[in-house]
Design a protein around this nucleic acid. Structure first.
Lengths: 198, 198, 198, 198
DNA sequence: GATGAATGAGACTTCATTCAT
DNA sequence: CATGAATGAAGTCTCATTCAT
C-alpha cells in the first residue's frame, strides 16, 4: 500500500540529516553564527524548504550539530582516558586524538570553540545543558588526568591545555591549513604541564 | 552661532568616540559580530542616532576599533622586541605583555581573535589591508625572534605560540575570569618552543 | 493490469472523497480559512499526498465542500417552502429545518457563514457564482415567504432572520454546545417578524 | 539637548498607534486573521517597518486591538446596565448602544466576533485571559439583567440575544451596509426574550 | 491508488541606516 | 551636537503543491 517502505524513508532521512549537518558545519566555519539557511541548503545540494523539512529552525539544526559533536567528543575522551596508562601518556593521547578529531570532523571543533567562547552570540542560555554536560563528561576527565599527574592547580593546567589546543587548532582550521603535527602539539603542551607539577 | 568653541567641540568629540569604542568592545565580546548598534548606544549611555553621528556605519566603527587596536598592539610588539635581550627573553616579555594588553584593552584581543578566525563572518575581504599590515608589523617580528632562537620551522612555532596565547586568553576572557598568571603561560609556551629548537 | 475492477475503484473513490470532505469541514470549523491540508489528511486518517490525489488543490476542496453544501441547503429550502402552508408556518419550518441541518452537516453551516462574511478571506471573488446562486435559489425563497407574510421591508426582515439564525447557530456550534432548541429559536425570530408586519 | 521633547515623542507615538490600530481593524474586516502586516502599513500610510516599530509582531497588534476594544465594550456595558431602569429598558439600551458601537468602532465588533467564533484560527489559547475577562465583565452583566427580567434559562436567552446581535451586525457590516435600525433590532430581540419569561 | 519527501513562493520579522527636529 | 522615529532590504520560516516510488 505504501509506495516507500518505512525503512526506505528512514534511510532517506538519515542520509539527508547527515548531508545537512555536514553542510551546516562547513557553512558555520565560513560564516559563524550568521550562517544562512539558504547557504546550508545550497551546500547540501538540497532545496531551501528541505532543510526545514528536517529541522524546525536554525536553532534546532545547531542544536543537533552540537549534541552529535558532543557524543563524538565523548567517545574520543573515553578512548583516551579509558586505557590503563600513566596519566602523561593518557594526556598525550587525548591531545592527539582530539586534535585529529577536530580536523576530521569539524562539528566537534565547532562544539569546543562555542564552549570556549562561552556561547558568545547565542542568546538566552540556550545551551546551558550542553555546557553542563560538557563540564561533567568532557572536562572533568581531563582534569582528573591532570590531577593524577600531580600537577598543582589542575584547573589552571586544564584550561591552559584546552585553551592552547583550541587556539592552535583554530589557527590551522580557519586559515585552511592541512592537519598539523598533532603529536607535536600535544606533546609540547603536556610536557609544559608536567614541568609545572614538580 | 555655535555656543561652543572649537576646542570644546573637539573635546566632546574625543570623549564620545572613546565612549563608543569602549562600549563597542564590550558588546562585541558579548555578542560577536551580531552586536547591535542599539546595544552599543545603550552601553555607551548615548542616544541611538548619536553613534551614527560619529560613525557612518557599523563597519566604520569596527574598522576604527580594530585599527586603533592595531596601533596599540604594535607598540606592545615594538616594546617587546625592541630591547636588546636574548630572543628567549624577548619572547617571554612579548607573551607576557601581549596577554596583559589583551586583558587590559579588549579591543586588542578582539583584533587578534578576528585575525585568528581569518575574519570569519566578515564578508568581502574588508579587512585585507589590516590583515596584511598585521603580517608585516605584528607577526613578522614575532617570527624573527623565533628564528633567532634557532627553532626549526619558525612559522609552525610562531603559530603554536600565537594560537596558544589566543586560546588561553580567550578561555579566560570569555568566561569572565580575572587576569591569569600571564608570566606562567608565556614562560610555558616559550619553553616548549625552545625545546624544539635543539 | 489493475487488480481492482472499475466498480471497486469507484467505490474507494467515493469513500475517500466523503472521508476528506468530512475531515475538511471539521478542520475548517477549528481553524477557519487557515486550515492546513496536512490537518485535513490527518483527521481523515489518510496520507498527506492522498488528499491531493483527490483534490487538485485547497481551493478545489473548499469548492466541492461548499457546492455540496449548497445542494443540501437547497433541498432544505425547497422542503420548507414547498409545502402549502401559511407563510408563518413555512418560515418556522424553514428556521427549524435549517438550524437542524447546520448542526447535522457542518458544511452547510460553513456555507452560510462564509456567505454571511461575504467571503472575507477568500481573495478574488472566487465564489461569485456560488454567491449568485445563493441569492436566487436560497435567499429569494426566504424573502418571498416574508413578503407573503405581509411584512414591510422584507429584505430587512430576511436579513434579520438569517443573521440571527447564523449568529445563534454559530454561538452554539463554535462553543461545542449540543443542538439547542431549534424550534424555540425559529419561533422567536419569526414571531418578531410577524409583529413588524402589522 | 534633545531634538524632540519626550512629550512630542509621546504625542507621535499615540498618533501612530491609533493610525495603525484603525488600519488593522479595517484590514481585519477585509481579510480576517490572514491580514498581512504590509496591508496594515499601507492602509495606515506608514512604512512597512514602522508597524514593527510600534508592535513587536502581528500577535501583539491583534492583542492590543482586542484589549482596547474590550475596554470600550466595557464602558458601553456599564453605561447600559448602570442606569436604574427596569431590566427591559436596560436590555434595549444595551442592544442599541452595543450595535451602534460595533458600527462605529469596528474593533469592538471584531472582539465580539472572535469571541463568538471561540477564537477559531487563533492557535494556542492565546486569548484565554481575554475570554475569561469577557465572561466576567461583559457577559455576566448581560445575563444578570436577563435574570432580573424573570426569564427562564437566562444563559440560553443571553446566548440568543448576543448571538442574534452578532449575526445581524455581521451581516450588515460584512456586506457594507449602512448602519441599520439598531433600535428596531434590539427591541425585537428583547421582546422575544420577554415573551419567554412568562 | 497511496504516500511522504522535496520544494520555493510568499509571509513574517529584524536591524542597519536615514532623516527630521 | 543629539536624538529617536521611520524605513526597507535581507533574513527566517510556513505551507500549498509537486513528484518519485
Amino acid at each position: 500500500m505504501s509506495p516507500r517502505t518505512k525503512e526506505q524513508n528512514e534511510e532517506i532521512r538519515l542520509l539527508r540529516v547527515k548531508q545537512i549537518m555536514q553542510a551546516a558545519a562547513e557553512v558555520y566555519l565560513e560564516q559563524g553564527i550568521t550562517m544562512e539557511m539558504r547557504d546550508v541548503a545550497n551546500k547540501a545540494n538540497l532545496g531551501y524548504g528541505t532543510v526545514y523539512h528536517y529541522y524546525k529552525n536554525k536553532h534546532a539544526l545547531l542544536d543537533d550539530l552540537l549534541w552529535q559533536a558532543f557524543h563524538e567528543a565523548k567517545q574520543v575522551t573515553e578512548e583516551a582516558f579509558g586505557a590503563s596508562q600513566p596519566p602523561g601518556q593518557q594526556l598525550r593521547r587525548y591531545g592527539t586524538l582530539m586534535l585529529r578529531q577536530w580536523f576530521h570532523d569539524r562539528s566537534v571543533y565547532i562544539l569546543y570553540k562555542m564552549i570556549w567562547e562561552n556561547f558568545q552570540q547565542v542568546p538566552g542560555g540556550r545551551f546551558q545543558k550542553l555546557y553542563d554536560q560538557f563540564q561533567i563528561e568532557l572536562y572533568r576527565p581531563l582534569m582528573s588526568a591532570i590531577q593524577q599527574l600531580g600537577a598543582q592547580e589542575p584547573e589552571k593546567r586544564a584550561n591552559f591545555l584546552l585553551g592552547s589546543m583550541i587556539g592552535c587548532a583554530g589557527l590551522w582550521i580557519h586559515h585552511g591549513h592541512e592537519e598539523p603535527d598533532t603529536d607535536d602539539i600535544a606533546d609540547s603542551l603536556v610536557r609544559s604541564i608536567e614541568k609545572k607539577g614538580n
